[in-house]
């Protein structure tokens, strides 16, 4: 429903966004592809030339590779599960008739404002540190041995920290959605004899579908690239226990200084991200009515 001139205008107004984003995507990507087929080590600059697929072969066969992939998926899946389950519960609680909903919201939203390196360092030092952390002190106080969170449970700890950062986001979106649920619907269900659980199962949860979709979509976008939290806390360790794909690439590039192999890893990560994106967009896109 538009005229030729407005369709032309539409193309012109879209162009800047599309063009800059395309450049932002394609130029680094092309360079990365180029590097991934080159021998390119900062530690031995005299050795150059084509590497063929050797960089890829090395990356895929490296012992850390599958661990890194499963860690990445574990991180994304774990954080999504935790934030959505607790997000729904907390949103349901705050949506009840309670005093001080405004201040409550402010408290709950706060972790979202904390930048990732700060969040990670607060948790690492002030809470999870085996000697001086608060959790260690509490454990000692009740006569238990302090838990070595980052040493013995590195992935779980990272997942926990990231979940804390993203819980406010999930909670507030779900709360907003809950508040748009008409009380008449709930009352009608009550008249029909539905108990609290069936009301949640058949009325509230379906109403939240769209909000949950948004949470999954947005969080996945941000979680796939999680880096700062691992960099600050475990450095991918101990060993490679908490190395994710982005972190493994980073190690290749910055620590091993092998740009070729890091680039090959980068391309693999991009391919995986696109597979995830494809399935996500396809299954979620409809739900968003955009």
């Amino acid at each position: 429903m538009a005229t030729q001139s407005s369709r032309l205008a539409a193309r012109l107004t879209l162009a800047p966004s599309v063009i800059v984003l395309f450049i932002w995507m394609i130029v680094p990507l092309a360079l990365t592809i180029w590097f991934s087929f080159r021998i390119y080590r900062l530690l031995s600059p005299d050795r150059t030339g084509w590497a063929g697929f050797r960089n890829y072969v090395w990356f895929v066969n490296s012992p850390d590779f599958w661990l890194a992939i499963s860690n990445t998926l574990l991180l994304v899946g774990g954080v999504l599960a935790i934030t959505i389950v607790f997000g729904v519960l907390i949103a349901l609680l705050i949506d009840q008739p309670v005093w001080g909903q405004g201040p409550l919201r402010i408290l709950v939203i706060s972790p979202f404002f904390v930048m990732p390196p700060v969040a990670a360092s607060i948790w690492e030092n002030l809470f999870m540190h085996p000697q001086n952390g608060m959790l260690a002190s509490l454990a000692l106080g009740v006569g238990l041995q302090p838990i070595l969170f980052l040493e013995n449970y590195p992935m779980s700890s990272v997942i926990f920290i990231v979940s804390w950062e993203w819980l406010p986001f999930a909670t507030l979106i779900l709360l907003t959605a809950l508040q748009s649920l008409s009380s008449e619907q709930i009352e009608a269900a009550e008249m029909d004899g539905a108990g609290a659980l069936s009301r949640f199962r058949y009325i509230v949860l379906p109403h939240l579908t769209r909000a949950i979709t948004v949470v999954i979509l947005i969080q996945t976008i941000f979680l796939l690239g999680i880096f700062g939290e691992i960099f600050t806390t475990t450095q991918g360790g101990p060993g490679s226990a908490s190395t994710t794909l982005p972190y493994m690439i980073y190690k290749q590039a910055v620590i091993a200084k092998d740009i070729g192999r890091a680039a090959a890893g980068g391309i693999i990560a991009v391919i995986l991200a696109n597979i995830v994106a494809f399935f996500l967009m396809r299954s979620m896109g409809k739900n968003l009515d955009v």
Binding site: F35, T220, P246, G265, A273
Partner: peptide, 15 residues
């Protein structure tokens, strides 16, 4: 547009 955000930053760090 949204999917361009899914590209891991670490992957394109060097370029």
């Amino acid at each position: 547009m949204l999917s361009t955000k899914m590209m891991p930053a670490a992957a394109v760090l060097i370029p």
